[in-house]
Write a protein that binds this DNA or RNA. Structure first.
Lengths: 183, 183
DNA sequence: CCTTAACTGGACCATCGGTCAACTTACGGC
DNA sequence: GCCGTAAGTTGACCGATGGTCCAGTTAAGG
């Protein structure tokens, strides 16, 4: 069991990290600064999250949670029940929206991650997309095609779209790419 | 004009960097080590290339040169003359092959780059792909679709494909993605 | 051969991610 | 309510890194 003060500190650290990421350049958000902003010692941050990557991963996971449950147990078309093509379209719409709203967090994780492709969140997304592709369009190499499509969500492109205020255009292009592919 | 000794050192540094990248983990290739391996002082490396990103960019550019000229002045289908769809297919084949052969270099650049999307190489590739898409399939959002396709070349996926010995499978998946898109 | 601008080297610096051992505290069992 | 202890906290400390700087060296044109 996690002690009450420990839980409080964990929340404070996550919140502080998020605030720092929102207001500063990624390079300026050091572990020292995070600790200071959260009002805890640096050792506490490392005790809680292991290392920078662990902190960023925890942050991503906290922001992605609701989408995960919506996919596995929510209503269609995001959740189970709808035809694969619709579910795929819904998934990418949701993920673009989510990634847009949390670009800085995503970017911080990508930069800190040693192997993005094996992170829990990526694995889950990949399994989902890959499965849907396989059942919607058995002729495709579902596994790799899923990787290719997910590659579009890299933070640098999202960051640029956000800066130019054209995230809807990005979502549209991706949507059209997915639908063309399944036809 | 670059002095003769300076030119010699520049080549030595590039060669040393490449060798270190090939034989060590990316994280172990520090600027100090590069300088030592090239047999020059650290200051020389920075004088020549400005910073880590500059060094890695120069390395990428040296490895990409031949493809660039093949595209702009070489024979079809890579060079001018062939129909856009063929040129696109040829480009992606060539680029996957190139990226596969130089994964470590590409990875080193991606990790060091501040804004990949504005690097000369990426800009050139994007302009090329975007132009071809626009003329092959005017209904598409050429600019963004080009970004989406180029996103597939991220080094982490190439690295994984290389490890599992399935780079041809990756090339095939990408080829099929491109051709489906233009149809 | 001489002048000078270009080049070189490596000591030096701030900062970073990460460790650790001494100290403090929450909390379940009595 | 108290107390033992496992869990949590802290910040000084460490090695390494990217980058700077300037005193000394050298290539090359006139």
């Amino acid at each position: 069991m996690e002690r009450a003060d420990a839980a409080r500190n964990r929340r404070a650290i996550l919140r502080a990290t998020e605030e720092l990421l929102a207001s500063h350049d990624l390079a300026e958000v050091s572990m020292d600064r995070v600790a200071a902003a959260a009002g805890v010692g640096k050792g506490t941050v490392f005790h809680r999250f292991g290392n920078r990557e662990g902190l960023m991963r925890a942050l991503v996971e906290s922001r992605v949670e609701s989408l995960s449950t919506a996919i596995s147990t929510g209503p269609p078309p995001l959740g189970p029940g709808a035809p694969p093509a619709s579910r795929l379209a819904a998934f990418f719409d949701a993920v673009v929206e989510l990634a847009t709203r949390n670009v800085k967090v995503m970017a911080a994780f990508e930069q800190a991650a040693t192997d993005r492709l094996n992170s829990p969140v990526y694995l889950a997304w990949h399994a989902h997309v890959s499965g849907l592709i396989a059942s919607a369009s058995p002729a495709l190499d579902a596994d790799l095609t899923a990787h290719l499509l997910l590659g579009s969500l890299h933070s640098d492109l999202m960051l640029r779209s956000l800066k130019t205020g054209e995230t809807e255009r990005l979502a549209a292009a991706l949507r059209s790419l997915v639908s063309t592919l399944l036809r």
